[in-house]
Nucleic acid binder design. Structure first.
Lengths: 150, 150
DNA sequence: TTGCTTGCAAATGATTTGCACTGCT
DNA sequence: AGCAGTGCAAATCATTTGCAAGCAA
């Protein structure tokens, strides 16, 4: 619970830093994103926050992304997916079902992440590329779709 | 050299398996994709194969993707990127410049890939998810954009 | 011939934007 | 009052698709 207000404080700080207000619409978006276990599409977000206009959702998600509060993911050509930025949550990866499109959060062990960071640092240095983050998505079939593909 | 015809044979086999001909347009697409060091966007592909109609490019890329010859990547909301499938090339990852959008191929050490596969297998089992592949993209700034951000 | 391919132009669908209105401050 | 924020509807833009013509088996 103390966790909740901590996130909220972070959100408000970042909004202030970007001269943005913590309006009802933005509050709804953040609340909705906190209540799910994976990134959501725009339609899914509208279901979670029914009195939010579509254009306001898109506009606020873009602003929240600029403010470092939200992260936009694109796994396919249709709907993008949105989640809270990792500064507000924790570093994680995604399981992506290539059949139904559902996306769920997962975490790796600290050891694996450390080794990964190390390898990334080496490659980045060799390629003269300034790496700021990595995205690791596991694609395949969720258990429901495995069952359906009998 | 021998490598080139090997890929071509693979392409033809896969096309045959899907009742598709190895037409001029498809030949151009495969040739273009073989000549670059990272996945390309549709406009970039059209530059590489000037006498290819846009709709034919889209249509053939979709068919080639179904045939397992091409892989479509989506890193941002605008243009998707296309590359030869890994069965024709080798497992690799991408450096993605968040400023200019350029994408370049990179490879990790076999040890890292093995450890990664091991960790992925564990997570997949725990989450009851059938993982078929993983995508690891390193985001940041390419050296040109680092220089430009003086 | 028979049907896969192609190119053009029109359609689709996610996302963005113009504009007038609402509501903080 | 003054300006950020909102909702509606129209605009954008990547991608898809209908259709008539071209080409290969």
């Amino acid at each position: 619970m103390g966790d909740g207000s901590e996130i909220e404080r972070q959100v408000i700080d970042r909004l202030n830093a970007h001269d943005l207000r913590f309006t009802v619409a933005r509050r709804q978006i953040v609340k909705a994103l906190r209540g799910v276990d994976g990134p959501v599409t725009l339609p899914e977000l509208l279901d979670l926050a029914p009195d939010l206009a579509q254009s306001s959702a898109y506009r606020n998600l873009a602003l929240l992304e600029d403010a470092g509060i939200v992260r936009r993911l694109v796994h396919s050509t249709d709907h993008a997916r949105y989640e809270l930025a990792e500064v507000l949550t924790e570093h994680h990866h995604h399981l992506v079902c290539d059949r139904c499109g559902v996306v769920r959060d997962i975490a790796f062990s600290d050891e694996t992440e450390e080794l990964l960071d190390q390898e990334i640092a080496e490659v980045a240095a060799a390629e003269r590329f300034h790496v700021t983050r990595h995205i690791l998505d596991l694609h395949g079939l969720c258990s429901d779709c495995v069952a359906a593909t009998s």
